[in-house]
Computed example of a mutant assay.
Amino acid sequence: MVAVLKKALAEALVSFYPFAGEIVQNRHGEPEILCNNRGVDFTYAYADVELKDVDLYRPHVSVDGKLVPVKMHGVLSVTQLKCGGLFIGCTFDHRAADAHSANMFLTAWAEIAQGNPITLLPSFRRSLFNPRRPPQPHKSLDKIYAPLLSMPPPPSADDHDHLTSRIYYVRSNEIDRIQSQASYNGTRRSKIESFSAFLWKSIAGAGASGDRSKTIKLGIVIDGRTRLSGKTTSLDCYFGNVLSIPYVEASVDELQTTSLKGVADIVHECVAAASTAEHFLALIDWVEMRRPKPAVVKVYCKDENDEAAIVVSSGQRFPVQKLDFGWGGPDFGSYHFPWGGETGYVMPMRSASGNGDWIVYMHLMKRHLDLVETRAPHVFRPFNSDCLNLACKP
C-alpha cells in the first residue's frame, strides 16, 4: 500500500507541480512559488497501537508531530497501525493553495493510485485575476483588511488559557435542528450560516472576566470561484487561493440577548456582502494598489477588547469519500489547522459515512471549547472510534 501511495504521489505532482516547489521571496519581498521540482518529503512509520486507542478527539496529543509532521509544508507521512490500518497526513503552505486546491490534489492522487485519469486537471491561469484598469477598490474592504504593519500588537498571553485543538462528531439531526431554529417565515439559512451563528452565540457565554461589553469577532471564509465564474470561464479547476474572509463583531451582551434567528441574520448579511463577483474584483484591485506591502485580514488580529476572534471555514467539499487509493474508502478524514495566532479556527466537514453527519475540527481557547461542550453536549460529541462504529482495517 505504501508503494502504491508513493508512486501515485510522484505522478500527481507532475500535474500539481507547485506543491513540489518552494515558497521564496521575489526581489520586491513578496512570496512567490519557485517551481524547482524540489519534491515532497515522504516518511513512513509504524505505530504499535490500535486505531481505537488513537486519541483523535485531542489532535494536539495524537496528530501534532506524530501522524502529521512538525514541518509546516511539503511533507507527506504514512503511519501504519498495529492492526494494519493507515493514517495518511500531509502538510502544505496555504500561500500556495487553498482548501479547494488541496482537495483537487488529493482526489487526483487517489485517482492515479487506482489507475484512473485525473478528473479535474489544475489550471494556473493567473491572468484571470489581473486587476482592472483603472483599479476600483471599495472602501468597505478597509474594514476587513489592513496593511500588516498598521495592526496593533497582539494582547499579552494568558497563562491560564491557551488555544488548543479538538475534533467533534455532530449528528445530522442536530445540524438540521440548528438550521431550523435559525430559519423563519420561509427564510432558510444555510447549514454553515446556522452552525456559525450557533457557535458564535454559544461562545458569548464564556467571558472569564464577566465583562459583557467585550466583543467576539466572527469571520467566514468565502470561496470566490463560483462568484467569478462566468458563462465562458469556469474556475472550478483553478489552483491557488481565491478566498475572502469578511467578518462581523458583536458584544457578549448583544449575542446573549439576541435570538439565534437574529444572530443568523447577521451572519447571513456578512456572507452575502462578500458573495459577489464585484467583491472579489474590488479585492484584487485593493491588493494591487498596495503591493508589495503585505496585508492581513483584521479578524486575525485579536485586540484587548476581544473576548474571542474566530474564523469558520466550510470543509463541506473535503472529498473524504473519494479518497480511495485502491483498498476501500477511508473511515475518517479531517483538516488540521494549529496555526500560531490568537484567532480561533473552526472547520466543519462531512463525515466519511456519507449520512449527513459532520466532523468538526475546532482550534479555540480551552475555556471556549469546555463551554460549548458543557452547554451543548448533544451537539458537540467528542470524536472517538465509537462515533464511526468501525473495525480497524486497511
Rank of each mutant, 00 (worst) to 15 (best):
D211H: 02
K214N: 04
Y168G: 02
H160M: 13
H160C: 10
N173S: 11
S202D: 03
S213V: 00
A204H: 05
T215N: 01
I167F: 02
G210T: 01
W200I: 10
Y169R: 13
I175N: 00
R189H: 15
L199P: 02
D159V: 15
S196L: 08
F198L: 11
G210Q: 03
S180L: 14
D176C: 14
N185I: 00
H160P: 00
S196W: 12
Y184D: 07
S196D: 14
G186T: 00
Q181A: 14
Y184V: 03
S172T: 06
N185D: 11
A208L: 15
Y184S: 12
Q181H: 13
S196R: 07
N185S: 11
K201G: 05
Q179F: 07
I178A: 02
D176R: 14
D161H: 15
A206Q: 09
L199T: 01
R188M: 03
I192D: 07
H162P: 00
G207W: 08
S190M: 12
A182H: 08
L163P: 00
A197N: 04
A182R: 09
D161A: 15
N185L: 03
A204Q: 02
V170E: 01
T215W: 00
F195S: 02
K214D: 02
G186C: 04
R189Q: 14
N185K: 12
F198N: 04
R166T: 02
I192G: 04
G207N: 12
A182P: 08
F195G: 02
A208V: 12
S183Q: 07
L163W: 00
G186P: 08
G207T: 09
D159F: 14
R189I: 13
T187H: 01
I192N: 09
Y168N: 08
Y168A: 05
F195Y: 07
R177K: 13
S190K: 12
G205Q: 05
S180M: 13
R189Y: 12
I192M: 08
L199E: 04
I178P: 03
S202G: 04
G210R: 01
S183C: 07
R212G: 00
R189T: 11
A197Q: 05
K201D: 05
S190W: 08
S213Y: 05
G205I: 07
I203Q: 05
G186S: 07
S165N: 10
E193C: 12
S183D: 02
G186H: 00
I192P: 10
Y184P: 06
L163Q: 06
S180P: 04
R188L: 05
D176T: 15
S213N: 10
A182W: 07
H162T: 15
I175K: 00
N173T: 03
A197T: 05
D159Y: 14
S180W: 07
S180T: 14
I192Y: 09
S183L: 05
S196N: 10
S196V: 13
G205F: 13
R166Q: 09
S180A: 15
R189G: 05
E174N: 04
R188Q: 06
Y169G: 11
R177E: 11
N185A: 06
I203G: 07
A208T: 08
R166C: 09
E174C: 06
H160A: 14
R171A: 10
D161L: 14
S202C: 09
I178V: 11
I203L: 12
A206D: 15
D159E: 15
D161I: 15
